[in-house]
Amino acid sequence: MTANHNASRVMIMAAIEDLNEKGGSSKAAISKQMESAYPDLPAAHATLLAHHLGKMKQSGQLAMVKNNYIRPDPDAPPKRGRGRPPKPKTPLPPGAVVSPPRPRGRPPKPRDPFAPPAPPKKKSSGGSGRPRGRPPKKAKTAPPAAATSAPAAAAAAPTGAPRGRGRPPKVKPAVAPVAG
């Protein structure tokens, strides 16, 4: 830690002691106390104060109770972290060899050393003689449709082109010109 960090922490502790509030001192109250005691603070005083208060809280120099910073009670037991504490490890006797941890996953089946080597496996599909999966689509081959006068018949006649997705568009009937 540099001298500036130590000086900031000393100023924060002095401000908390000067305020001497029973429930602790808020960040705003600490800031006002420091500004009145030290008029030549830098422009980034609020940011630096927040940084140092957070660091002091993490290191255990300050405790936080209801958004107020207080000096921790020296007789209080240390605060435990989240989660279940680890099991205590028993020390190994001297000269004991530590085995490597077991690998992950299921262990392989034991092999018979006197058995003949297995023949190489061929790709089988389960005995039915068919390949696995869905068979590929066959290409549609239809004879060319003769031209008809009915538009509905033309729309229903299969064409060689694949259909698009969704509902087909409406086909408007051809209107014959009226001779007059």
Results as ranks from 00 to 15, higher is better:
P91E: 07
L62F: 07
H5E: 12
S99R: 15
P131W: 00
G105M: 05
A154C: 03
V178S: 06
G95Q: 03
P93T: 13
K32A: 11
P162L: 07
P39K: 12
A146K: 01
N20P: 05
A15P: 11
P103K: 08
D75I: 13
A157R: 02
K79Y: 09
K27Q: 04
A37D: 08
P117M: 04
T159S: 08
A142N: 08
Q33G: 08
V175L: 05
P78V: 09
M56P: 09
N20K: 02
A76Y: 05
P39C: 09
G126W: 06
G164Q: 05
K109H: 08
R71H: 07
Q33W: 02
A46M: 01
T141C: 09
A118L: 05
A155C: 10
P94D: 00
R165S: 14
D112I: 02
G105D: 03
G164L: 08
R102F: 11
L41Y: 01
G133T: 06
P93F: 06
H52D: 10
R163L: 09
Q33I: 06
R130P: 03
P116G: 00
S8I: 12
H45E: 11
D75M: 11
K32W: 02
I70W: 00
R82T: 14
R134C: 11
A176Q: 01
G83A: 15
A142W: 05
P78D: 02
P144S: 06
K121H: 03
R71Y: 00
P173A: 10
K89S: 11
D112W: 04
G180Q: 04
K79H: 09
K140A: 10
P85I: 04
G126Y: 02
N6Q: 13
P85L: 07
D73K: 00
H52L: 04
D73W: 00
A43V: 15
P103E: 07
E21A: 05
M13S: 13
A7K: 14
S36M: 10
A115H: 00
K57N: 12
V97P: 13
G81I: 11
P151L: 12
G127K: 03
G95I: 03
A150D: 14
K57A: 10
G24L: 02
Q61M: 04
P74R: 03
M56K: 01
A15Y: 00
P100T: 08
F114L: 10
P162H: 08
K170T: 11
A63L: 00
Y69W: 02
P39E: 10
G81F: 10
G60Q: 03
A156V: 04
Y38V: 15
G54N: 01
R84A: 14
N20F: 04
M1G: 15
G129L: 04
A37R: 08
G81D: 13
S8W: 01
P119H: 00
P42C: 05
M11H: 03
P77T: 10
A145E: 07
T47D: 15
R111Q: 07
A15R: 05
L92H: 04
P108L: 07
A154G: 11
A37L: 11
P158H: 01
P135K: 06
S149C: 07
G164H: 03
T159N: 01
S125P: 14
A96C: 12
I70P: 05
D40K: 15
R102Q: 09
S149K: 01
M56D: 02
A145P: 04
R102V: 10
K79Q: 14
S26F: 02
P94Y: 00
K172R: 09
D40C: 14
R9N: 11
G95F: 00
L48K: 06
T159I: 08
K32P: 06
P93E: 07
